[in-house]
Amino acid sequence: MAATASHAEVPRSRPGLDLLRKALRHGSVLFGGGLILALALVALFGASLAPYDPMAMDFTARFAPPSWAHPFGTDDFGRDVFSRVLYGAAVSFQVAFIAVGISGVVGVALGLTAGYRGGWLDEVIMRAMDVLFAFPAVLLAITVMAILGRGVENAMIAIAIVYAPIFARVTRGAVISVRDREFVTAARALGQSQVRIMLRHVLPNALGPIIVQTSLSLAFAILAEAALSFFGLGTQPPDPSWGRMLSEGRGFLQQAPWMGIFPGLAIMVSVLGFNTLGDGLRDVLDPRFRGRH
């Protein structure tokens, strides 16, 4: 990491700030970040923005097409689809952030330990991760849900289990490229503890790929939560979730296509935001991609 090397040699340089400035000038970071910021605000304040109670049924307004009163139409219970999409943002973002948070903490801890310690510990950890990698992601999530049972909390755990190995692998790779650098050797020579070296010196210098992976994993987590809810395993009725709404809309495609179109569009825009942000951050932060277009 060139920026970090300059940090070690020239204490006054501010590599973090430089990278931040570079990131904020990157088109993909701006577009993806802007999209995510807007959606995050919707997730936070969706309840006050929603024109109707997302659970309120109105049987006189069943299957109403999009109009000024109901911009995204209504569903088979006469519930306002727009309000439900706004509420669904909170569910999707909450699940995605918590699941990726758990998988990030677990995966980074495992990858950091494996990469820094090496030897048999590295072998054991990474072979265990290889085993989890061998399962197709969706099937692994379904299997975990079969064991834990349905529900949004269990969906978070299932998604976290699926993505922790990816964080472990990415972190291990980044740590290996840092662990033999001069500042780490110097810290060892100063007698610092292994945990302190890992957390204070190695991890901060391996953060680039981890941040990129976080953004990409958030995109996958939104898709995974929607898929699990679509299958009836994640969010349970009557709670609005984008995947659940799509599943409900599937039965009324001819009659009320808006029931399926708008939740799907919301998922796509969120995933697009995280993916674009991740791609931009990779250009800026990941040394393997810096300068490549």
Binding site: L223, I261, T276
Partner: peptide, 17 residues
């Protein structure tokens, strides 16, 4: 980028529609 972001189950629903 759009293709990567489309949920497969949504794509399936749209194609069926």
């Amino acid at each position: 980028q759009l293709g990567v972001s489309v949920p497969d189950f949504w794509m399936g629903i749209l194609l069926i529609l």
